[in-house]
C-alpha cells in the first residue's frame, strides 16, 4: 500500500513537472509572464511533494525493510522525486528570466525553442517509461541529451560572439537565451537521471556517471 502511494505521488509529480516546464517555455515564446504565479506555485508544490516522497520512503524502509525490486523502486522514487522538483525549479528560473530581462519579443527564440523541443521529448519519454516500466526507449533519451549538450555549447559560443560584436550594449536577448538554454540543459540532465532510475528499478544496474 505504501509503495502504491509513493508511486502515485511520483507519477503526479511527473505530470505536474512536465506541464510546468511546458508552461514556462510557452510563456517565454509568447513573451507573456502572466503564468509566473502559477509556475511558482507548481514549483513549490513539486518541492513539497518531494519532501513527502522522502518521508514516505524513509518510513517504508524503517517499517518494512524492503528488498530487491521494492528496495530499488524506493531508492529510485527518491531520485525521481528530486528530479521532478528540479524540473519545477528550472521552470521557475525560466519565467524569472522573462520577468527580469523581458520584454523579449524582439529576440530570436529559435535556439531556445529548438532545444526545448528536444528536452520536452526527453521528459515525455522518461515519464512514459516510468509509467509503463518499459526500458526500450531510454536509450533515445541518452542520445538526445548528447544533442542538447552540443546545442548548448554551440549556442553559447554564438552568443559570446554576438555579445562581442554588439559592443556589449543591449544584450538582454543573448543573456536570456544563454540562461534559458542552461536551464534546459540541466532539465535534460535530470531527464537522463530519470531514465537511469527507471532502468535501475527494472535491471538493478546502476548507470555509469556521465
Amino acid at each position: 500500500m505504501g509503495l502504491t502511494k509513493v508511486s502515485s505521488i511520483v507519477l503526479d509529480m511527473a505530470i505536474l513537472a512536465e506541464s510546468t516546464v511546458t508552461k514556462a517555455v510557452t510563456s517565454y515564446n509568447d513573451d507573456d509572464n502572466s503564468a509566473k504565479k502559477q509556475i511558482f506555485e507548481s514549483s513549490a508544490k513539486l518541492r513539497f511533494l518531494q519532501d513527502e516522497v522522502s518521508e514516505l520512503t524513509i518510513e517504508l524502509i524503517a517499517r518494512f525493510q524492503p528488498v530487491a525490486t521494492d528496495l530499488r523502486f524506493i531508492k529510485s522514487c527518491m531520485e525521481l522525486a528530486y528530479g521532478f522538483s528540479r524540473f519545477g525549479r528550472y521552470a521557475y528560473d525560466i519565467i524569472m528570466v522573462l520577468e527580469i530581462l523581458g520584454p523579449l519579443e524582439h529576440c530570436d527564440k529559435l535556439p531556445v525553442m529548438r532545444m526545448s523541443k528536444l528536452v520536452m521529448e526527453m521528459m515525455a519519454l522518461g515519464v512514459a517509461a516510468l509509467r509503463t516500466r518499459d526500458n526500450s526507449n531510454l536509450g533515445r533519451i541518452y542520445e538526445m541529451e548528447e544533442m542538447v549538450d552540443v546545442l548548448f555549447r554551440k549556442n553559447l559560443r554564438e552568443s559570446s560572439q554576438l555579445i562581442r560584436s554588439n559592443n556589449y550594449s543591449d544584450n538582454r536577448c543573448n543573456i536570456s537565451t544563454a540562461l534559458i538554454l542552461k536551464y534546459l540543459e540541466r532539465i535534460s540532465d535530470h531527464a537522463c537521471y530519470i531514465a537511469d532510475s527507471v532502468k535501475y528499478i527494472e535491471t538493478g544496474m546502476a548507470s555509469p556517471r556521465r
Binding site: S136, L138, G139, Y142, E143, M144, E146, M147, V150, S207
Partner: peptide, 17 residues
Amino acid sequence: LSSIDSNPKHESTSPFT
C-alpha cells in the same frame, strides 16, 4: 549527431544492449 533523428542506433554503445 545528425543521424540520431533518422537512424536510431542499435549498437553496443547503448547501455541497454
